[in-house]
């Protein structure tokens, strides 16, 4: 049974991205299941981050459609939205490969910025809040509570008032995930969340991702190089190579897929049987 085709939160079809003459992504189609952890893997330069940047609106794809389906209500065509609307309207949140926190602001402030749009509405176009009108105080309190909730989940409550730039690397990664979660997304995109983490931190990350999937009932879509992480936590794996999708399936199916092994080992097709048997040793 292939669950992700039944209820996809994101349906990508014929996605193509060209930079001048270079084809970074070539006609890629896949589905991301609503309650799955989906991994996008592939060798360096396979176009993984480009796919992410298309989904999150930092690039406009040359061709193809990306449809984000709400549980109820309308579906959003991501390629037609501005980058900020992809988070604000379609509720897709992301983290970055080289962490992009607001380094000079405190941990708590980072999470408050993430709740900008809701708070902005409550502040009645700022003017109201300056004059003390409206229910801004209540909205801000709720925002702080949500931030505190996520700080507890990632274990950073005690460092809430420290500048984000002062945190150790692993904490910064977790804070970025917490910040993305504070935007209440339907789809959380993580660009190499385990990069640079040690084994213990990496296990902690796996648990966090599990708990997000179980408790928030949202989809997680991640790029990852660390195969142990990918195989351990993914429900669904998509493999890219040279901008093309070469495999798509459960971890078990991917593990046994000959073309995936070839792509990672860089072996031409005719030598494949030998290479595969070597890997199986």
């Amino acid at each position: 049974m292939i669950s992700w085709h039944e209820d996809p939160v994101l349906k990508v079809e014929h996605l193509t991205m060209r930079f001048g003459g270079l084809v970074a992504i070539d006609d890629v189609s896949f589905d991301v299941g609503r309650h799955d952890i989906t991994a996008l893997i592939g060798p360096n330069g396979a176009g993984k981050t480009t796919v992410f940047n298309c989904i999150t609106g930092f690039y406009k794809p040359t061709e193809g459609t990306m449809e984000l389906r709400q549980p109820e209500g309308p579906a959003f065509r991501l390629e037609r939205l501005d980058d900020h609307q992809i988070n604000a309207s379609a509720r897709v949140a992301r983290t970055f490969q080289n962490i992009r926190l607001f380094a000079g602001m405190t941990v708590l402030e980072n999470l408050m910025v993430a709740q900008h749009n809701g708070l902005s509405r409550a502040s009645a176009l700022t003017v109201g809040a300056i004059l003390g009108l409206g229910n801004f105080a209540r909205a801000e309190k709720a925002a702080v509570e949500l931030a505190r909730h996520w700080l507890e989940r990632v274990g950073l409550v005690s460092r809430a008032d420290e500048p984000a730039g002062d945190l150790p690397y692993g904490d910064q990664r977790r804070l970025e995930i917490a910040r993305a979660m504070c935007t209440r997304p339907l789809l959380l995109c993580l660009d190499e969340p385990a990069a640079g983490l040690n084994a213990r931190e990496s296990d902690g990350l796996n648990e966090l991702l599990y708990s997000i999937r179980e408790q928030e009932k949202i989809a997680i879509f991640l790029i990852e190089h660390d195969m142990s992480v990918v195989m351990a936590i993914s429900d669904h794996i998509i493999v890219l190579d040279y901008g093309k999708k070469i495999a798509d399936g459960t971890p078990k199916a991917i593990r046994d897929d000959a073309s995936v092994i070839a792509a990672y080992l860089g072996v031409p097709d005719e030598e494949l049987p030998d290479a595969v048997s070597e890997v199986r040793l």
Partner: peptide, 22 residues
């Protein structure tokens, strides 16, 4: 207020701001 925090966040990192729906 949110607008002021958005200003400072934009000073820190404009791309991250956009990814948060600002």
């Amino acid at each position: 207020l949110p607008i002021g925090r958005a200003w400072e966040a934009m000073r820190e990192d404009e791309i991250a701001c956009r990814s948060l729906g600002i």
